[in-house]
Amino acid sequence: MFKRLMMVALLVIAPLSAATAADQTNPYKLMDEAAQKTFDRLKNEQPQIRANPDYLRTIVDQELLPYVQVKYAGALVLGQYYKSATPAQREAYFAAFREYLKQAYGQALAMYHGQTYQIAPEQPLGDKTIVPIRVTIIDPNGRPPVRLDFQWRKNSQTGNWQAYDMIAEGVSMITTKQNEWGTLLRTKGIDGLTAQLKSISQQKITLEEKK
């Protein structure tokens, strides 16, 4: 169930391209415009997507990853294993993690069937560096609404905000991946996880038929 919630949630996290980005210092504006741009692209490019579902990787690479804190999220997933990894191991892992996100997020976007969304009203940021933004996803086919909290983090150097995690039903996506990959990290280390991520990233994206 959580895996499905995570995939549905990713439908609204794909941010804007650099040329049309919203105010990078306001995570609420980023979330709002990102959702609108993403849904528009999914709707307008269905012919290309249906002809070649792996085209979704391109959308992810162009529109999402430049505005997601990939390395920060990847380091959180590694936890204690990050500090013990060599620079070469980290570089290989982050490259594999990025390719994994292209496949995983692309597969999530393949679930698009006309969903709509509501974003919580903007709250004062103050001096906060981590801000959760509640998004409610509404399914046109009558499924119950899904309420999610996207975690946005302020870059201490640039002042810009980027998304790095999502919490559904009190469970963090980062925590879920830590639990899912924990045994592999304990037995085969970061190299074993890197190899698995490379394998997963090679899987073809498949479209979910409308139910």
Rank of each mutant, 00 (worst) to 15 (best):
E99G: 13
A22K: 09
S172W: 05
Q36H: 14
G142P: 09
I137G: 02
T58F: 09
A22N: 12
F2S: 03
L185Y: 11
T175P: 05
A73T: 03
Y164A: 07
L148Q: 02
P66C: 05
A195K: 10
P145I: 05
E45P: 04
A75N: 01
M31V: 02
A9P: 02
P124N: 09
Y93C: 08
I119Y: 13
I119N: 12
I133F: 00
L10S: 05
I174R: 09
L207P: 13
D191M: 10
L5S: 03
T58H: 08
M166G: 01
A96L: 13
A73M: 06
G170H: 00
Y81I: 05
K37R: 12
L65C: 05
F94D: 02
Y67V: 07
Q178H: 02
A110G: 13
A21Y: 12
Q62S: 12
G159W: 11
D61C: 09
K29C: 12
L10G: 01
T158V: 05
I200P: 06
N141S: 06
P140V: 13
I174E: 06
K37Q: 13
L207Q: 15
F97Y: 15
D165E: 00
R134S: 11
T129G: 10
E209Y: 12
K211Q: 14
I137R: 13
N155Y: 01
L30W: 10
W181L: 15
Y28H: 07
M7E: 00
E63G: 04
G142H: 08
I137M: 12
K37Y: 11
A9F: 15
D40W: 06
L148S: 02
Q157P: 11
E209V: 10
W181Q: 15
T116S: 15
N52M: 08
Q202R: 10
L64V: 03
A92E: 15
N141G: 14
D54I: 12
Y28I: 06
T20I: 12
K43N: 07
E33R: 04
S84K: 11
A85L: 07
Q24T: 13
N155I: 03
G192K: 11
G159D: 13
A19R: 02
Y82D: 02
N160M: 11
L5K: 01
D127G: 14
D191N: 07
I205A: 02
A104V: 07
L197N: 15
A88V: 13
V8F: 13
N155P: 01
Q178N: 04
E208K: 07
Y100D: 13
A96S: 12
E91I: 14
Y105A: 00
L42I: 11
L193H: 10
P132N: 07
V77N: 08
R4H: 14
E99Q: 11
D32P: 11
T86H: 10
G189R: 05
K29V: 12
T58V: 15
Q48R: 11
Y117H: 05
K83M: 07
R147S: 11
T136Q: 12
R153E: 00
T158Q: 06
L30K: 15
K177I: 11
I59C: 09
I119T: 08
I119H: 11
S17G: 11
F150C: 02
I13P: 01
S172N: 06
Q115R: 01
Q123F: 08
Q48I: 07
D61F: 07
L148K: 13
L56F: 09
T86R: 07
S199Q: 11
R50Q: 09
A92N: 14
T158E: 07
Q151V: 00
V77W: 05
L56Q: 14
Q69A: 04
E209R: 13
L56C: 04
A14Q: 07
Q123G: 10
A75Q: 02
G192W: 14
R186W: 00
Q157E: 07
S156P: 04
L5R: 00
S156D: 00
E91F: 08
Q69I: 04
I138M: 15
N141C: 05
Q103H: 11
P121F: 11
K43D: 13
I133C: 03
G189C: 09
I190G: 05
T206L: 13
G142E: 09
T129D: 06
G114C: 06
R147G: 06
A14Y: 15
T158H: 09
T194A: 00
A51L: 10
Q107R: 06
A51T: 14
V131L: 09
H113V: 12
V12N: 02
I119C: 08
K128Y: 07
I205E: 13
L184N: 06
S201T: 11
M31C: 02
A14M: 10
Y55G: 07
D191K: 10
I200Y: 13
T20P: 08
A168L: 08
H113P: 09
L185Q: 08
I200G: 07
I133P: 04
F39R: 01
N44T: 13
L76T: 03
I200Q: 14
R4E: 11
Y72T: 01
A51Q: 14
I119W: 13
P53R: 10
T86S: 10
Q151F: 09
S17I: 08
D61A: 10
I200V: 02
V60S: 13
Q157M: 10
R98K: 12
K128H: 08
L184G: 05
Q157N: 05
D139I: 05
D23R: 08
V146H: 11
E99D: 13
W161A: 04
L11I: 07
Q123P: 11
Q48H: 14
E180R: 03
Y55I: 10
W161S: 03
G182K: 15
M173W: 02
P27W: 02
Q62V: 12
I174F: 00
F97E: 02
R50V: 07
P145S: 04
Q48C: 06
S17W: 09
Q24G: 09
L11P: 02
L64E: 01
N155K: 01
R57N: 15
K71W: 02
K198H: 10
A18W: 14
E63R: 04
E99W: 11
T194K: 12
A9H: 02
M7G: 02
A92Q: 13
T86M: 11
T38R: 00
P53G: 14
M1C: 02
L197A: 00
V171Q: 01
A104Q: 07
Y81R: 09
E99C: 09
N44E: 14
S199W: 14
T116F: 11
K102D: 14
M31H: 06
T86K: 08
Y82V: 02
P145T: 06
A75E: 02
T136M: 10
V77M: 12
T136P: 14
T20L: 13
L185S: 12
M111R: 04
N179M: 11
L148C: 00
M173A: 00
A110Q: 10
A88L: 14
Q202L: 12
Y67L: 02
I130M: 04
V8T: 07
K177G: 13
K210V: 07
G114T: 08
V77C: 05
L11W: 06
L65Y: 12
R57P: 14
D40R: 10
N52T: 13
K177L: 06
I130N: 03
R143Y: 03
Y72G: 00
A92W: 09
A108L: 06
K177A: 01
P140N: 09
N141P: 06
N44R: 14
Y81H: 12
R98L: 09
L109T: 12
A88T: 10
R57W: 10
A195G: 13
T158Y: 06
D54S: 13
A92S: 14
Q62F: 09
G114H: 07
A195N: 10
I13D: 00
Q48N: 13
Y112R: 03
K43T: 14
V68W: 01
W181C: 15
N141D: 07
A34G: 05
A163Y: 12
L197P: 13
Y100A: 12
E169Y: 04
E180L: 02
G79K: 03
A120N: 09
F94I: 10
T194L: 07
L76E: 01
D54R: 06
N155H: 01
Q46H: 08
D40S: 14
D191Q: 09
P15C: 05
Q46S: 06
S201G: 14
E99S: 09
K29D: 15
Y81A: 06
Q118P: 11
G126S: 13
E45I: 08
A14W: 14
M7A: 02
Q151G: 07
T136C: 07
Q118I: 13
D23W: 08
Q162Y: 03
I190M: 05
T187Q: 07
L64Q: 03
T194C: 11
Q123A: 03
L193P: 05
K83D: 02
S199C: 11
T183Q: 09
D191H: 06
F94L: 07
D149S: 02
W152D: 00
D165Y: 02
V135Q: 02
P144I: 05
R153Y: 01
I130V: 01
E33I: 15
W152A: 04
F97N: 15
N52F: 08
Q203W: 09
E169T: 04
Y117W: 07
I190L: 07
Q69V: 04
Q107L: 14
A51Y: 07
P124R: 13
A19Y: 03
G159L: 12
N52G: 05
G159E: 14
Q157T: 07
A108N: 06
T86I: 06
